[in-house]
Design a protein around this nucleic acid. Sequence first.
DNA 1: GCCTATTACGGAAACCGTAAATATT
DNA 2: AATATTTACGGTTTCCGTAATAGGC
Lengths: 309, 309
Amino acid sequence: MNLQQFRFLREAARQKFNITAAARALHTSQPGISKAIIELEGELGVPIFARQGKRILGLTPPGQQILLAAEKIMQEVDNLKKLARDYAGAPSGTLRVATTHTQARYVLPPVVQKFARKFPQVRLKLLQGNPPQIAQMLVNGQADVGIATESLAETPGLACIDIYEWTHVAVVPPGHALARLQATPGRLTLKDLARHPLVTYEAHFAGRTRIDAAFAEAGIEPSIVLEAIDADVIKTYVAAGMGVGIIAGVAADPAHEPLIVLPCGHLFGRNVARLAVKQGAYLRGFVYSFIEMLAPGWDKRRIEEAFAP
Amino acid sequence: MNLQQFRFLREAARQKFNITAAARALHTSQPGISKAIIELEGELGVPIFARQGKRILGLTPPGQQILLAAEKIMQEVDNLKKLARDYAGAPSGTLRVATTHTQARYVLPPVVQKFARKFPQVRLKLLQGNPPQIAQMLVNGQADVGIATESLAETPGLACIDIYEWTHVAVVPPGHALARLQATPGRLTLKDLARHPLVTYEAHFAGRTRIDAAFAEAGIEPSIVLEAIDADVIKTYVAAGMGVGIIAGVAADPAHEPLIVLPCGHLFGRNVARLAVKQGAYLRGFVYSFIEMLAPGWDKRRIEEAFAP
DNA sequence: GCCTATTACGGAAACCGTAAATATT
DNA sequence: AATATTTACGGTTTCCGTAATAGGC
């Protein structure tokens, strides 16, 4: 029994029991993985993979439990490596932040700049994806922290803290019919919006859930003419006159925006942007620092408490 | 990095960083352990042992964390082995029960008999010790379940369930001055007892704590002339006229006892015998069966809930 | 001087990659 | 026929035990 076998087993499971794919992912040979797992089965005396001849269908019941144990072990090994690097020398390394466009474009820049100044030897990687992908990256250990409004709190195996609240805004070009509400945005209604073609986020993104829910509850079916991942694209099309945009408030600065910005908090409610890490993961010192910079008021002690199971 | 290194590290820590002792315990060579740990340090890039020349003093700060991770990993490996054996074939194996004399002599016999009938292929080992030793055996993985009244609930890293309540009794030879209270045992007082030399358990055993506490609270200092680990010894000396015995109620059956038995629940309160396992340990099927036999009313589901963190 | 940890060394075993064979769709 | 898994094989590396050396107390 050795760690290599656990690593192989974990990867094989992640690759849906395709050993060839696992070999590619781990930069090793396919027979090596096959043999290692067969040896593990031999040593334990139980089959792990349910096979039909040479086809692997999935896990046997004991195989499921063994995989679970293997994942725990590998997580501890990962933690061990990280903490060793933490103590080994200068805080060099890589901070991998999985996040959405909204955060990366409008929220993170000042934080990232500050972080880069404080930890010049830490490489920063921004991994963009939609919230479910972000959650998956955390679970798989491909990212250290994830930031998004959706998915994170609902994904088992992750630990979250709330960072900030935000609300949606509608954006229209100057001269648009709704522009007259600029002085009294509180009077904007769902019906007003539904009278125009809408441009907003794709499913899963930045509170899109809330938008759909609000219209559904009011029994109104808006016509969404364009869906995009990011507010920049949405604003571009709004400026081109394609319709009314609904975007996250953080993505629109009324002062510097050529478009008219109409707050919509009263229509779509409040959203909470959250930061998540994998439960049980060891966090290197600079990860705590990053979180502290992003969410003022959280220090290492409070963060640890929030992440404890 | 490999499991062997973790195994060696754990044992070295258990042996108070005496590598020679660890080698003996693991039936391997001392240079092997030394080298394995040095290699681990090299790979991680941090010292694990605080050394003064060639003397190992203890753990460095990162070493403490590494040891923690190593112990978690080894626990998972142990669990893996056990669950594999569980699925591998007939439920053969060994059930190691750490317990005190009181339990082994008066409580466990019927349970053990029943268990042996149901699982003829499981070898049973009764490991006797005092409660702190029992707790230690569980923590070290040298025993699967522990049963005792004291220590278990207070030891971190163990998970407990209550099995039964019991109270103390006083035993005196026929004709003793206190024998006249046999019809009205409720009138027995601490003062009555303190007027005679007492024979009871050693510290740490079977509710001795309670006995001392009760006398201390009443401001009475009893004269304890003899302390023993087990009720058999105590009863022997009581029969010989050395004094009044105070023992666990389960250890005295009034019907078959040559001695007079006087219940003392009103003097020393109630005690709870507990069963404990190591937190996070995998329990083989027959371990659950054993617990169910010992503590009727507990099924596998309830036990798992009680042991969950 | 005795005990303990580390270094040196050599044989055995394990590991891992290429190549071939075999099973599955 | 094409793809995927397992078996076969061989070179390299790692492992581990014995023997020797160095370092505390």
